[in-house]
Design a protein around this nucleic acid. Structure first.
Lengths: 161, 161
DNA sequence: CAATATGCTACGGTTCTCGTATATTACGGC
DNA sequence: GCCGTAATATACGAGAACCGTAGCATATTG
């Protein structure tokens, strides 16, 4: 499997791949740290902020769907939503199509606070992006999306037994 | 500030930047989900796994340094390390240079289980990387590193009030 | 050498988590 | 339409985690 004699070209490529993987791990670590710090400012547990992000990103969502996306126990999700609702981050409406279900939606006003706290990171990323050509940015976005998909697939594989 | 009349070129660029930012958020969400699923398999809280990753990445580390990197309270870190130590993930050695301090190091054997659980994601990322030229990979790694640095800076800004 | 700062942990009150039970509603077969 | 089963959300409670505070040991500073 492992080539016995690897030329400089092979070595360079493998090294580059390793650095991409390291970059991904490091990025993930920094993003979770940032989330934790932002959450601390708002009095939110990091899992609460994770859920709030998911609600913001994926529109109105049922608690069960949220639990699946976040990888949380259903009862835990109830607790998370209780806290988010009590603090005015989200609202629970009955699902008109299913009278057992609720739809959780994010409230606009407090969301501004969130953006404020992420403003530093946001502008830094924009500054970084400014160094790239349009086509490069599109390639970057494509890579990020594909990697995120890979993460989702890996998660599902681990979830289903 | 905001341009009144934006041409197609401007629009394309802004769209590309937005997609990079969205990709980053989505990637972060998927990576934390993956971490949660992996942790669930191992009986670890997600914060425990975060810490274990940091210990693996940044060599032997004092509990205080770990707490800072992870954004956790010192007392919380003690609890995390107790659990990790009890389950055989890490060991605490006294720091020879400072007799108050400890150095936490990861143990090799159980680490193999970790790699196993991340194997799916790992191979997917390698498959993705295979589609890129060497120079592209290096550019990607550079982008990831710069973004991670931006995250660290943003976190520090939020931490130091 | 005193005074202060630092590293880590013990303790305890509050909060969170998650398995189970329960109430309500959907759905499928007949 | 009816009944059994599945699904959605929450209540409850035991166990665990979090984190402010206090405490001890050691460093560092003046």
């Amino acid at each position: 499997m492992t080539p016995v004699a690897s030329g400089d070209a092979d070595r360079r490529r493998r090294r580059a791949t390793v650095e991409v993987k390291q970059g991904l791990r490091e990025l993930g670590a920094e993003l979770t740290l940032l989330n934790r710090r932002v959450g601390a400012r708002l009095g939110l547990k990091d899992v609460d902020l994770d859920c709030l992000d998911l609600i913001n990103a994926h529109g109105p969502l049922s608690p069960t769907a949220l639990a699946r996306r976040a990888g949380l126990h259903a009862a835990t999700t109830t607790g998370v939503l209780d806290r988010l609702e009590r603090a005015g981050w989200v609202a629970r409406d009955r699902d008109p199509a299913d009278r057992r279900a609720f739809l959780v939606r994010a409230l606009r006003d407090r969301n501004a606070e969130l953006l404020e706290l992420f403003a530093g990171m946001n502008s830094s990323v924009e500054r970084i992006c400014a160094d790239y050509e349009d086509a490069d940015l599109e390639r970057l976005a494509d890579f990020l999306r594909r990697t995120a998909d890979a993460g989702r697939n890996a998660s599902e594989e681990l979830a289903g037994n």
